[in-house]
Amino acid sequence: MLSLFARRVTLSTRRSAATYTRILPSSASAIRLRGIRDTTPHANALRTFVNPQRNASTKATATTNKAKSSAKSKTAGRVKPGRKLTPEQKAALKQALQVKKELDRKKKAERAAALKAKLKAQSEKKKQAATLKRKRLAEKKKKLAEARKARLAKEKEKRLKAREAKKPKIIKPPPRRMTPFSLFVQEAKKPLQGVAADWRNLPEEGKQEYAVRAKAVAEKRKEEFNAFVKTVTPADVIRYNRHQRNKGATGIRVRFNDRPLSSFMRYAQEFRMRPDQAGKRLVEVSKAAGEAWRSMTQEEKDQYKPKSTKQTTA
């Protein structure tokens, strides 16, 4: 019998009969170590044959489970098959099934609503987290942009300062001239139109007084300007004149040689200081000075001959 059983197992697992004849007296653990799988029916049969107590325990367990299931069906109020139900029992059973179905439907709806609310809360939470992340990212970008802008402005200011330091400075000459009308405007501190009307209505004695005072101021300014001219170079004057020309203003003329002003130029400067020439344009004053110079005698012209100076202004 053992040989037949071992031969049957050999045909299913491709093992030799001598191998199973040799391992039959061993235990179930030894059989597993020899390579027989627990899931094969021949291995289970072999295990039962080797251990006779296994068959008895299996039957006892099956009997116990059957008894428990029958007792449970009785307590649950199940009706045995083949027994007929009365109409009242059918109605009660139908009503119980409907109540159970309604309860199941309500529970299912509640679970679906709870799941929907949970998913909605998770979605809202994700949206809030994404919004907060975007906000923080935007704030970070804004701070970086502001820092970059401040850094660029600082670098630009630094470059401008370095450029300005390399550039030569523009000289600022002191004022040179002062006419009677300019002195009157400076002391009046009124709008130019009203001051012009007051100057026209001013008597001749008042104009003469302003002419004397303006001549003194002009002489003082001329001395200051001559002292200033001694401290500058031709390049400084050229740079200043270019700067004034770009602004639409007039520059200065400085003579850096020993040649003094001519007699006519000295007379023209004095002619501009007269009170009757106040308020007139430079072209009109120069034209009037030329006509007056041509009508003068040689002796009168000799009074304006220049004195030798090293550096004069025009």
Rank of each mutant, 00 (worst) to 15 (best):
S70W: 09
S3D: 08
A113L: 05
T13N: 12
R111S: 11
A18E: 15
F256I: 04
F181M: 07
V50E: 02
P174G: 12
Q95V: 05
F256W: 02
P81W: 05
Q208V: 14
R34H: 14
N65M: 02
A218V: 01
Q98T: 04
T233I: 11
P168M: 03
T86E: 01
A249N: 08
S262T: 09
K84S: 08
P168H: 01
A214E: 06
R239E: 02
T64A: 12
N44Q: 13
K305S: 07
A268R: 01
G206V: 01
K140G: 00
V229T: 08
E205P: 00
A129W: 05
Q244A: 02
I170H: 10
Q298L: 09
T131W: 10
S70P: 05
K106Q: 15
V185I: 11
P306S: 06
R136F: 01
L93F: 08
P234Y: 06
A56F: 04
L137Q: 12
S26N: 10
E204M: 11
N246D: 09
G194Y: 02
A150E: 09
K189G: 01
N44K: 13
K167D: 03
E124I: 03
G35T: 02
S73M: 14
K247T: 04
T10K: 14
K287Y: 05
T179F: 09
R259G: 00
K94W: 03
A153D: 09
R239V: 03
D38C: 06
